[in-house]
Design a protein around this nucleic acid. Structure first.
Lengths: 153, 153
DNA sequence: CGGATATGGTTTCATTTTACAACCAGATTG
DNA sequence: CAATCTGGTTGTAAAATGAAACCATATCCG
């Protein structure tokens, strides 16, 4: 083998993120971070993965700027892992994963959980992709095209 | 080692999908399937991955009901791989991945592509998560709660 | 103070997965 | 009927994964 293949140099914005979050654990760590978990032990207990793997994943997520290791919130001697702006940007991705899981990965008679609006405690809508003028868009309604030059002047 | 850990039995709808699409290639295959690719050779050439890995991934995606291997569209001797309903359900997930990649995985001066409305060729909006009554929701505006019993009567 | 225990990892080693390359079989082409 | 294209299936080596053992600090408890 030569090395696990990297998508760093791909020009496709679907491919590049997979280096950072394209494994079986990273997104679950991020999910737990959204849920408020911060400490190594909390993640380890909640996810049940091997500690060396968790350490490697946390390091990886920190390197990719998704989590930040902050030194000590309450004067404790250890560090905590908190979501960065980039990490919080994964919210819609997690919601998409969740809604797809809800719809396609459970039998009808299985107990399940759902996302609700914190204010009224009612189920949220499905994610929506809209055109500039507000029409709902599906797979056949979009095309990919070059982004206009964004270089600083 | 015992076996790569599975999330099949997890009750969390974020975790379960990762067995099906939680690796570095599956989502790219699905992306290409959305783009209209169907044949083994097309995927292989476009993705540049090893043929045995592609064969394994395609088999895996078919087993999970994301792709279907249809026998022969034009009387050809080989099969083609097409998205199922479940596979098409991954649209929003791919869009979320794409938008996150666009925003956080490119330098300002890199050439890039974006998603546009096919009708007017204008950039699409960001994905939106809305409450039942249409308010835009962020990470702090939602909670998870048990889904009411959905068993058939 | 001194030992027990909790926390946050790293190390070791066996197993699995990934990747590349070579090979093979059936269909198509010349 | 030989060459070649398509769609795979073997090898084989490197790398990732996972369980358990180990280690270094901190904190608790008597």
């Amino acid at each position: 083998m030569v090395k696990r293949s990297s998508h760093r140099t791909s020009g496709c914005p679907v491919a590049r993120p997979l280096d950072a979050i394209g494994d079986g654990w990273s997104l679950l760590i991020v999910r737990d971070a959204f849920a408020g978990l911060r400490r190594f032990g909390e993640f380890q207990k909640n996810l049940g993965l091997a500690r060396n793997i968790l350490a490697a994943r946390l390091r990886h997520l920190v390197e990719h700027g998704i989590l930040a290791a902050v030194p000590a919130p309450d004067g404790g001697a250890y560090q905590e892992y908190v979501l960065t702006e980039k990490g919080r940007g994964l919210f819609h991705l997690l919601v998409a994963l969740r809604q797809w899981g809800e719809e396609f990965c459970f039998e009808r008679d299985e107990p399940q959980v759902q996302l609700r609006d914190r204010l009224h405690r009612l189920p949220v809508r499905r994610l929506e992709l809209c055109s500039h003028d507000g029409r709902l868009l599906g797979p056949d309604d979009v095309v990919v095209a070059p982004t206009p030059d964004r270089r600083a002047p």
